[in-house]
């Protein structure tokens, strides 16, 4: 991994809002040509970090080198080599897809062919439609197209698939993987573990303004040291049950009234759990077992789920 060429180096980035520190000295590197995921619950500081990297917020401390340029000193050069899709953007609703692409392309010295960009982003039918009339997925593809008009090396996508239906999400995944194939470096944020798993070469997990893990998806799961998870609920409000004492359990998590036991030995843990339940006359419901996922890594590390509610 170290042999890979570094394209972004983030050095001790800090951002405070009043007396609240949203980003607390984050450091990481992104390699050329990879898809890098920033993962974290709401308010973790993902957007703040990303927007500092693209020059939309001024860091209070630290800096980053993006594409060889310092974001605090050579922002204009940085902007020429990056493309940005923000979490919440609206565009001139009364312009058409084609018009707004030409408009944004005119802001840069270099640009790609707009017709083929429209083709690639699957917007050919909507070429002459007003932005107002686009669907959520189409708007999102347009936002990404706008990030690509000047043929940037590095593309920042802030929650590109949030709010989209499963089919639209898959379409976007294909587009992102296509971009990766073209040799672009992509930094994206997401709440979806499956998405991170499919798209990202490496994942940085953020929580409360801090980077708490950074690795490949499979390595992160492996580090959990438990390959299975057992999920269940007690039918009645359960009180002092020592779930840690169940055999084979490496870690216990819970989310509201759902308990998750992580284990290396599924069979042992299951029999032990059922024994304990009948001993204490507790009724188990919604019992299920599955292999551990990134979601579990997250729950394990932060005690919180990625998406709330």
């Amino acid at each position: 991994m170290d042999s890979q060429e570094e394209i972004i180096r983030v050095i001790n980035l800090v951002k405070t809002y009043g007396d609240f520190t949203a980003v607390k000295g984050v450091e990481f590197q992104v390699h050329k040509g990879e898809v890098f995921g920033l993962l974290g619950p709401n308010g973790a500081g993902k957007t703040t970090t990303l927007e500092m990297l693209v020059g939309l917020r001024k860091p209070d401390q630290g800096t980053a080198i993006v594409g060889g340029f310092d974001i605090t000193k050579e922002l204009k050069k940085v902007k020429e080599v990056i493309g940005v899709q923000l979490q919440s953007t609206s565009l001139f609703e009364l312009l058409t897809v084609e018009e707004i692409l030409h408009l944004y392309a005119s802001f840069y010295p270099k640009q790609v062919s707009i017709p083929s960009l429209i083709e690639e982003m699957l917007l050919a039918e909507k070429r002459k439609s007003r932005i107002k009339s686009l669907s959520g997925g189409q708007k999102q593809r347009l936002a990404i197209a706008l990030a690509l008009v000047h043929d940037p090396w590095i593309i920042f996508l802030d929650e590109p698939t949030t709010g989209l239906d499963p089919q639209a999400r898959r379409t976007l995944w294909d587009i992102i993987l296509q971009l990766k194939k073209q040799g672009k470096t992509i930094v994206l944020t997401t709440h979806y573990m499956d998405e991170a798993h499919v798209l990202c070469d490496r994942i940085a997990i953020m929580n409360q303004g801090e980077l708490i893990a950074l690795d490949t998806p499979s390595q992160l799961v492996k580090n959990l040291q438990s390959d299975s998870a057992v999920e269940f609920r007690f039918q009645n409000e359960s009180s002092e049950v020592e779930l840690h004492e169940i055999e084979g359990v490496t870690k216990v998590g819970n989310q509201k009234d759902v308990f998750v036991l992580y284990t290396d030995d599924l069979q042992l843990t299951l029999t032990s759990l059922i024994h304990m339940a009948s001993d204490k006359q507790l009724k188990l419901t919604d019992l299920q077992t599955r292999t551990a996922t990134l979601e579990d890594v997250f729950l394990h590390m932060t005690g919180r789920r990625l998406r709330e509610g």
Binding site: V54, K79, L86, T89, L91
Partner: peptide, 8 residues
């Protein structure tokens, strides 16, 4: 803000 993210 989106335009500020470009070199405009």
């Amino acid at each position: 803000r989106r335009m500020q993210g470009t070199t405009l």
